[in-house]
Design a protein around this nucleic acid. Structure first.
Lengths: 119, 119
DNA sequence: ACAATAGGTAAGATTATCTTACTGTCTGTA
DNA sequence: TACAGACAGTAAGATAATCTTACCTATTGT
């Protein structure tokens, strides 16, 4: 699938995106991780490896899943809200037709609220 | 929560368990990973770090999720049906009150169909 | 222009990993 | 018993990576 270096590049890219999305500077993250800032820079440049335990801590700091940071295609939606989990389990039990109807209903509800907030 | 070394121990344990569950010897895995056998031994002993890209490849070889290897408790519900993903995303945009109402509605629908299939 | 912040990069010192070899354990078998 | 083969743990020098400090550029706001 991918060479080791491609894999590292992808992980590096995910790490940078996640950090920027979290609104953190390399310096801030370095302090939280107990690293020096250039280390973060090199990691995000794909020049330095990230260890497994570091990935777990990055995921915690950036509030993203470890799978995302490791380059997983987001084909699986990780649901961590208990209510959403329950809802998802209920949805899984519905017939395809009922699910389609529900989807249309949800889309309609969303459209209504969007009209108020105007994008 | 956990020190870096504890984290590494946990990852090491998961890697060993996953390998044994896959019915592979350290030597076989070493060959697949392009490593020497002692490296696998040291990794599983928690004496050597595992890089992020290596974790991704281990997960592939052992057919487990990267999250599991990284020590994640399986508290996240993985949704892999595309329609359910879409529905879950829509649900996540709803207000808590709207979600509560939907849950009750879904429970009611389920109760009806359960009456037919009688659990 | 100046100061402050963010980020990229170089180079020697430091540390980890790699590679090979040796060791022990367990299992099956002559 | 004795031997062979597979599996796994560990040691030590050679090798390769990372760390640490420093210097540099770009951007932003005063």
């Amino acid at each position: 699938m991918s060479t080791e270096i491609e894999q590292r590049r992808l992980i590096a890219q995910r790490l940078r995106e996640a950090r920027q999305l979290a609104g953190l500077s390399q310096g801030q993250v370095a302090k939280m991780m107990g690293m020096h800032r250039p280390t973060i820079s090199e990691i995000e440049a794909g020049n330095r490896r990230v260890s497994a335990d570091e990935i777990a801590r990055f995921a915690d700091i950036y509030d993203v899943s470890t799978g995302y940071l490791l380059g997983n295609t987001p084909d699986k939606l990780a649901v961590d809200d208990p209510k959403l989990q329950l809802a998802a389990r209920e949805l899984a039990k519905l017939s395809p037709d009922a699910l389609d109807g529900l989807l249309r209903a949800l889309a309609a509800v969303r459209t209504e609220s969007d009209d108020k907030a105007k994008d």
